[in-house]
Simulated assay, not measured.
Amino acid sequence: MKLKKLLFIFCFLLCASAFSQILSSSVEKKTIALGEVDHIVVTINDLKSEKVSAAAENELLPFHFEEVKDSISQTQDVYYRRIEFAVFEEGKFTIPALEFKVGGKILKTIPYEIDVINAAQKDDPINDIMNNKEVKLEVTDYWQLYKFYILAAIAVIALIIAVVMFIKYGRKSKDSPVVATNQTLKELDSLQKKKYVETGNYRSFYVELIDISRKFIAKQYRLPADVLLTDDLVDLMKKNNTISQENERVVEDVFVRGDLVKFAKTFPDKETMEKDLADIREFVKRSSKDLEFENLRKDV
């Protein structure tokens, strides 16, 4: 009875080996130096035209193994795969069991442990391949080396010049006599549209008219008209000689009348209010001639 069982087991194993594939694998070296090329070979025999499926080329080994070359060949009966690899870190690294699918069956290799060492010793001399050679640099070579620093320096200098020019001239353009004149004329037009003259609101009319005039004198003539009393402003204009006598007269008449209206000491009629508005408008227009004369006087 025992003999029959043994015979049955032998026949089963013989049949199984006759109709199954055989997978074998080998690694050339288990200890390698940093960057040294090693290889693993996987062979599957007795395929009987079965298709073999595995990871794609250069993707079979894990992360630390840098695959140098992955070659695959297959015939009807034999699958052959040779992978050359290198490792660039010291330590022990494992090639795990690699899976290959043959038909509907999974075959696996045995795992391998690879020991990676640094073959260079601390005291080993380092020899240059060739002697150092002095290289003469041309102007173009210096340009290629330092062009980004030069361009950055030029950009910074250009930015500084632009800021200085803006501070020096940009702000002045906004405060130029023409800009101040046009702005004040627009303010006078807005005052006229409020219909203070037509409605007889003389107090609001003179308050705004004198406020516009004071701001204009302060900006155009650089006099502190916005903080001085009327009498002090008139005295300063006469001593300063920047404003022409005709314009001084207009400012003095309108400002004095405005103060009287403000304290209810006089009640101007419509014609007087219209004349004062027109006189201030003409004064603003003539102001550029005062500045031209002042510039000529300074040049002399």
Rank of each mutant, 00 (worst) to 15 (best):
K133G: 04
I114L: 14
F65S: 09
L98R: 13
V135E: 03
F93Q: 11
D124S: 11
K101P: 07
E66D: 07
D123F: 08
A56I: 10
E84C: 02
I129D: 09
I95E: 01
V68C: 01
I83F: 00
D70A: 07
M130A: 14
D141V: 10
K105W: 06
K92Q: 11
D77P: 03
A97W: 03
T94M: 01
A119R: 14
N132L: 12
D123M: 05
E84R: 02
Y80G: 00
I114C: 11
V102R: 01
R82L: 04
G104Q: 11
E57K: 15
I117K: 02
Q76P: 00
K101M: 10
K101N: 09
I110V: 12
D128A: 11
S73Q: 06
K105L: 05
I83R: 00
E84L: 05
H64K: 15
V139C: 01
A119T: 11
A86R: 15
E84I: 02
L61E: 13
I110C: 01
P62W: 03
H64N: 10
V68M: 04
D77M: 02
A97Q: 12
K92G: 04
A55K: 15
E138W: 08
M130D: 14
N127D: 08
E89R: 04
M130E: 15
I114T: 11
Y79K: 00
E99L: 05
F85I: 04
V139A: 13
D115K: 14
K101T: 14
A120M: 13
E89Y: 04
L107V: 10
D128I: 04
T109Q: 06
F63L: 10
D115I: 06
P96R: 01
E67L: 07
D141S: 06
T140R: 15
I95F: 01
G91I: 09
V87D: 02
N132E: 14
P125H: 04
R81N: 07
K136D: 08
E66Q: 11
K108V: 09
A97I: 09
V135D: 02
N131P: 10
I117T: 04
Y112M: 05
L61S: 14
S71V: 12
V135Y: 06
V116M: 04
A56T: 14
T140H: 12
Y79A: 01
H64M: 07
E57Y: 05
I117G: 00
F100R: 02
L137K: 15
V139L: 06
F65V: 12
I129M: 06
E84Y: 02
F63I: 14
P125A: 03
Y142F: 15
Q76M: 00
A54H: 14
I106P: 05
T109Y: 07
P125K: 03
E113Y: 00
A97P: 10
D141E: 13
V68K: 13
E134L: 15
A56L: 10
A119N: 08
T94C: 02
F65W: 04
D70Y: 13
R82E: 05
E113A: 06
M130S: 15
A119V: 14
V87C: 08
